[in-house]
Design a protein around this nucleic acid. Structure first.
Length: 594
RNA sequence: GGUCCCGUAGCUCAACUGGAUAGAGCAACAGCCUUCUAAGCUGUAGGUUCCAGGUUCGAGUCCUGGCGGGAUCACCA
């Protein structure tokens, strides 16, 4: 139990005694007191006026008198309008710190107390390298997975790779024709880049053919439909579906190149999966499910043989589930995999990290499953996130404005290296240690920059200005951690913390720090509930600011009063622990030095 | 056009989900390196929270209607 929960409980009990009746916990609103007012926590008395039947000020005073008189926790109070500002005793704060220090993993709920949750994220196409949009997806998915885990849930992280379809055939065909048999290692490029390049090549050649056909008098649509390249690509897809051995071989080879490239990028980003699904294995799933429900009369078949779900009574359109040739569409696959995953893994919830352009898709998905009678249909959660926009607008591959994930990471690392060299703080360290620090600082900057923004909002990314290392940034938080670790080394208390006495005066900023320590579990819970890592990011920034403000003016090592010195060392150590834990939730490493 | 999301300082974002005088960081200006790491700290300046109504003790937050931006409404995935 953290500080806020404890106070809530105590005050709730007191209120029931004062008003001699049961009180809805929702009416007990306790918040941290605003900086401009005296006090630590504030009780909002407006919701209680119906019980008190007096003016707000009088009710607040009555409650304040009672609390201060009956409990040693509350030292004094003041009343401003309907706000009861309570100041807690020093003893309470010191006890709270004592409790917090004794819980090494504090903020993290006990394992096994929660639900089993599957989270799907990343989900790339194999014909394009990862770009900035994927980075937001990957970072969000990974951070949310860790936060859910910290909230006591068992989490299964999965990736669904789109490795089939006409777009893959385009890359394959282009490579076959113009690739001269050269592999990624022959050319010295990443596999995913190579395949992406041939996808682009296909498109270029395809356009030339379309132009040529238009010169011959065909319409745009006819030209698009009849160009030799597209016909060949379709033929290749047919062969793929017939498991033609030559096509399969090519497909497997080119995919393996892509996966190698993806894995490298995932590694650099520091993200991972418990299981990878491939659409080539799952794309037929769902057909049987649809046919079953067709028999039951839930779905209907049109004259041409296509199967539809009628959602008009839910104010949505009709949705096709099987084409007239009997094949599955995207929705059908997702229906099938959802049913299978809930059965195979016995999960309670399923989170999909997918961009907001698919809001409609997921709305329909859970609606259809609900109509099919699956109780867990309401437990599908679409973690919908906004676009990453550039100063020039949206990323468009045709205009070459796509920000490539690997290029971006490279840029970040060289920027971090330069900033680091300018400061000269890493002198004397080995090259590999220095490279390690540059790497985690660069990625810390990138990850924090993206995660601090509310997922559902579109966000702006300016690659030219790159990312700051000052202010509300990952490196600022990492830097504070490095300084705290340095302090611990110099004080020689790394492994055992000194005990501090329980009778010592606390400075306001010291109380504020302890308050923030106690708030951390709430932040983690809130981040889990709303699947918003931004809560954690912004909390860490607040904490670090408070720490820096205070410690800039107070030397710990030169402190002669041993009690004060021990207390401040403890507060520093604790701040370092929370930074480490909090950044871990975001998937960001913290260095010992930087 | 229907539906969904967004609109907060010059810029990028917060605001503990209905609480007090809307806060940070960039950028600008003025200070602080004999002081545990200056990737830091302290100040100054910057606001009709898109507009208009409504709900109530209280609205950036909730409801209605506008305006602006984005997404989506495929036998693509």
């Amino acid at each position: 139990m953290n500080i806020e929960q404890y106070l809530n409980q105590e005050i709730h009990k007191a209120l029931e005694r004062i008003f001699e009746q049961e009180i809805d916990p929702k009416q007990v609103q306790i918040q941290r007191t605003k900086a401009d007012f005296e006090g630590d926590f504030t009780l909002v008395v407006f919701p209680l006026l119906r019980l008190a039947k007096t003016k707000p000020e009088d009710a607040a005073k009555r409650i304040g008198d009672f609390l201060v008189e009956k409990s040693v926790v509350f030292d004094r109070f003041n009343v401003v309008k309907g706000f009861l500002n309570l100041t807690l005793s020093h003893g309470f704060w010191l006890n709270a710190l004592q409790d917090i220090v004794q819980q090494p993993d504090f903020g993290f709920a006990e394992k096994g107390s929660g639900k089993k949750i599957m989270i799907e994220y990343s989900s790339p196409n194999t014909n394009k390298p990862l770009h900035l949009g994927h980075i937001r997806n990957n970072l969000l998915g990974y951070a949310v997975a860790r936060i859910l885990e910290a909230c006591g849930n068992e989490v299964v992280k999965v990736n669904l790779v789109n490795d089939r379809g006409i777009h893959i055939c385009k890359s394959m065909l282009a490579w076959q024709r113009w690739g001269e048999g050269k592999t990624p290692s022959d050319l010295g490029v990443k596999g995913d880049k190579l395949v992406g390049d041939f996808y682009v090549r296909f498109d270029q050649e395809y356009k030339k053919q379309i132009e040529a056909l238009k010169q011959e008098g065909k319409t745009e649509d006819e030209a698009k439909d009849q160009a030799p390249l597209i016909l060949e690509a379709r033929e290749m897809l047919r062969k793929w579906e017939d498991r033609d051995s030559e096509v399969m071989k090519l497909w497997e080879q080119m995919n393996s190149w892509v996966y190698e490239g993806f894995d490298e990028t995932y590694n650099r980003l520091g993200i991972e999966f418990d299981k990878v699904y491939y659409e080539s294995d799952t794309y037929k799933k769902g057909k049987e499910l649809v046919l079953n429900h067709l028999e039951k009369g839930l779905l209907k078949k049109k004259e041409d043989g296509s199967v539809w779900a009628d959602l008009t009574e839910d104010k949505l359109d009709e949705k096709i589930l099987l084409r007239s040739d009997g094949t599955s569409v995207y929705m059908t696959q997702d229906l099938g995999t959802a049913v299978q995953r809930f059965a195979d893994y016995d999960i309670d919830q399923h989170v999909y990290v997918v961009g907001n352009e698919q809001d409609y898709h997921f709305k329909v998905l859970s609606l259809i499953l609900k109509k099919m009678g699956y109780e867990w249909a309401t437990q599908l959660f679409h973690l919908s996130y906004g676009m990453v926009e550039l100063p020039s607008g949206k990323m468009k591959s045709r205009e070459g404005t796509v920000v490539d994930a690997d290029d971006l990471i490279d840029t970040m690392i060289s920027t971090a290296a330069k900033a680091s060299a300018d400061s000269g703080k890493l002198e004397g360290m080995s090259q590999s240690d220095i490279a390690y620090v540059h790497n985690i600082v660069a990625l810390g900057a990138l990850k924090y920059f993206i995660l601090k923004v509310d997922p559902k909002k579109n966000m702006l990314f300016n690659p030219e200005e790159s990312i700051d290392f000052n202010g509300n940034t990952g490196p600022f938080i990492q830097y504070t951690h490095a300084r705290i670790r340095s302090l611990m080394r110099k004080a020689d208390v790394e492994n055992q913390l000194p005990q501090f006495p329980l009778s010592i005066d606390l400075q306001p900023k010291e109380q504020e720090l302890i308050q923030q320590f106690g708030h951390f579990p709430n932040v983690v819970a809130e981040a889990g509930k709303s699947m918003n890592p931004g809560f954690v990011a912004n909390y860490l920034f607040d904490l670090v600011k408070t720490f820096n403000q205070f410690y800039h003016d107070h030397s710990v090592l030169n402190e002669t009063d041993e009690d004060v010195r021990n207390l401040r060392l403890s507060l520093s150590w604790q701040t370092g622990q929370i930074i480490k834990n909090g950044m871990w939730l975001l998937g960001i490493d913290v260095p010992e030095r930087m």
